[in-house]
Design a protein around this nucleic acid. Structure first.
Lengths: 202, 202
DNA sequence: GGTTTTATGTTGACAATGTTAACATTTAAT
DNA sequence: ATTAAATGTTAACATTGTCAACATAAAACC
């Protein structure tokens, strides 16, 4: 009883290793590229070892999604908590960090904000609300701050947050999915977007 | 020589039937749901009949994508050509039509504006530019009109169009992929988005 | 018209993949 | 020490995309 619980023995917490490696594979090659055989081979176990820790492939992916949300949360939280900058500055920094994440981890971004397993995802969101993990929660807080400062109109902040998130998410999606044939203009487009948003929200 | 070309004989233009049925399957059940065996079975042919008309499954899907763009074009063109309404009105109508299409055909929308086959897609876009099929081309025209009327600022319309498209695309994506936990508020969010955009673009 | 060539369709087979069942082994519980 | 539970392995199967070999209908050619 030296370990708290689920103490490893054969592989040394294979479950966590599966999640981590799966996340790395997906991040590098995309969701469709992952196969249980490849995954288990990398870890030196047999193909079906997965089934001792996950019901099936889908359950594993859901675990990766949850893990991804956690990582994203870890990445965004410090940005929001930085009170040394103005609301407008934080607004811009936030959007840029979001875009950067999408650009640096397009496959992971698609997994987290894509369509796959919408139904099943809800089980995760029950106790770890996507709203929070996404940063949408923090965005709402930021918008409320901006409302107090009189920078933007006092409208339902949830509606505002949805609109802002959609704008940045749309930009990220179109970019990483190759639908904006002007990646060189990206910086200009982003800055203009922030400008339009801040002006339009007034 | 009664038929112009590619006159059918066995199945009666199987190629077109494959594209049409494939599109219907994808529209109804999504890209991942389509299998060549199911597809061919519906048409009463054998599994490998596809390979007489397409190099492989991917080539077939690319054909469906092209067909989808055409349909989308047919849907959007009349809206843009309607000069009986003001620029602002057409702007709003356009966005709504775009959103409606995404909501009514989420699987098709994901296929047309998703990540799959980005590389290979470019071959299609050579002679049938996505920019045109998307309606982005028409959007730029609308924005130029708005600029002339002094409704919005005279900025690079391509940048403006990217920003606007991203906003609406983001809204559509988040909605159909189940990331906006307020589908009831959708109408309010959309109207507010148009409001913010028109105000911000000034 | 008859022959050849081409276009189109079919059958059988194979590799990759997710999955299950049966068996094996290591750790934990009693 | 024995039993039970957890974890891992092997063999096998169904599904799917794909290819090779074969079959047939249409078109082309003389």
């Amino acid at each position: 009883m030296k370990e708290k619980r689920t103490s490893p023995y054969h592989h040394g917490n294979l479950k966590e290793a599966l999640l981590q490696t799966a996340l790395e594979i997906i991040d590098a090659q995309g969701l469709d590229a992952i196969t249980l055989r490849d995954l288990t081979q990398r870890l030196g176990t047999s193909r079906t070892a997965v089934y001792r820790h996950f019901a099936n492939k889908e359950a594993l992916i859901l675990g990766v999604i949850e893990k991804g949300y956690e990582q994203l949360n870890l990445l965004f939280t410090p940005i929001f908590q930085d009170r040394t900058h103005s609301v407008a500055e934080r607004f811009e920094t936030m959007g840029r960090a979001y875009l950067d994440f999408a650009i640096e981890h397009p496959n992971l971004y698609r997994l987290l904000f894509g369509e796959k397993f919408r139904q099943e995802r809800e089980e995760i969101c029950d106790y770890k609300d996507e709203t929070q993990a996404t940063g949408l929660y923090a965005l709402i807080g930021l918008l409320l701050e901006a409302q107090e400062e009189g920078i933007i109109a006092k409208v339902n902040p949830i509606v505002q947050a949805a609109m802002v998130w959609a704008s940045i998410h749309g930009l990220a999606s179109l970019l990483i999915d190759g639908h904006l044939m002007m990646s060189d203009n990206m910086e200009a487009i982003y800055e203009y977007s922030i400008e339009v948003l801040l002006k339009g929200l007034r």
